[in-house]
Amino acid sequence: MTEDAQILIARLLAHQTLRREDKLVKRALSDENFRSDVDARLKACGMKFVDNVYADHVTLALTRDSESKVFGTKDTWQNNNFGLARDGVALLVVLWSLIILPKRERQEAHQMAQEDQNDMFGKEKPLPRAEDTSIGISYRTLLADFGEKLGKKTRMDMNLGQLSRLGFIERKMDLIMEGPLLDLLMDTDALKDRIINGALSDIFHIPMPRTPAVIEAERLAAEEAEHALTEEVKPSEQNKE
């Protein structure tokens, strides 16, 4: 067991990602004792094993306690540790939203459909693989919809190239597809509600929830706008007199 744990960690360090179908990866996902050995070895080095039931790959990452000590000297480490500029991070979030969120819906819908079917043996059914449910997005569509806000064509092409080299995306002709890391290193729980109900609500055509706080904010904004309009009208009325 000890040697296998060592080999799995070394392979992840060398290759960055491994597929879930890999023999040692499958063992780490199913064998509790083996996983504990892997986790203990990684924790001693300030690292952790990262997997996601919706993703086809696994990878390694730094623990939260280690991040500041490793990346604290870099200007960009607080929003990413890949050296991405602000527009690069924005592009990454947009791609995650347009590729991963629809994929999640298809995977969950497929899973629910399977659970609704009668199965006399009650066998657990895995989620469909990402490569079977992730359809990507057209580069031309991305450029038309977000080019002006994300640095136009030259800057977007530069950031897409960097995201491809880092393993977040893959390019196939005009299509931008999910890479091994896109569904692994993005915090879905933290991002999903913020994106659907906030930053990209206009794209997903989902209005923000009408909570009391939102209603009060809208009322105050309306009062401020009315006050500003009144202040603008007063000088013109005085001039007429």
Rank of each mutant, 00 (worst) to 15 (best):
T2D: 08
E3S: 03
Q6R: 09
I7V: 10
L13H: 04
A14V: 04
A14E: 04
R19W: 01
R20S: 03
R20V: 04
D22M: 02
D22P: 11
K26N: 14
L29R: 13
S30D: 13
D31E: 15
E32N: 05
E32Y: 09
N33H: 07
F34S: 07
F34T: 09
K43F: 13
C45H: 12
G46N: 04
M47L: 11
M47F: 12
M47E: 09
V50S: 01
V50C: 04
V50E: 07
Y54H: 09
Y54W: 09
D56G: 09
H57Y: 10
H57P: 08
A61R: 12
T63Y: 03
D65V: 00
D65H: 02
D65T: 05
D65Q: 11
S66M: 11
E67W: 01
E67Q: 08
E67G: 01
S68A: 13
S68P: 03
V70N: 03
F71E: 08
K74E: 14
T76Q: 11
N79V: 10
N79Q: 14
N79P: 00
D87F: 13
A90C: 12
A90M: 15
V93C: 14
L101T: 11
K103R: 12
K103Q: 08
R104F: 14
Q107E: 10
A109N: 07
H110D: 08
Q111K: 08
M112K: 11
A113T: 05
E115V: 03
E115Q: 09
D116Y: 08
D116I: 12
N118V: 13
N118R: 02
K123T: 14
K125C: 01
K125L: 04
K125H: 07
P126N: 11
L127A: 04
P128E: 06
P128K: 11
R129S: 05
R129K: 14
E131K: 12
I135Y: 10
I135T: 06
G136W: 15
I137F: 07
I137A: 11
I137Q: 08
T141C: 01
T141D: 13
L142P: 03
L143P: 06
A144V: 01
D145Y: 06
F146G: 04
E148S: 04
E148Q: 05
G151D: 01
K153D: 02
K153Y: 00
R155M: 02
G161L: 07
L163W: 09
L166H: 07
F168C: 02
I169K: 05
I169R: 06
I176P: 15
I176M: 11
E178I: 13
E178H: 15
E178R: 13
G179F: 14
L181Q: 14
L182I: 12
D183G: 14
M186F: 12
T188Y: 12
K192C: 13
D193P: 15
R194N: 09
I195W: 06
I196Y: 07
A199S: 11
S201H: 03
D202F: 08
I203Q: 05
I203W: 06
H205L: 08
T211V: 10
P212F: 02
V214T: 02
E218P: 01
R219L: 06
A225R: 10
A225S: 10
E226R: 12
H227N: 12
L229I: 06
L229V: 02
L229P: 00
E231G: 00
E232W: 05
K234W: 00
S236T: 00
S236G: 00
Q238C: 05
N239M: 02
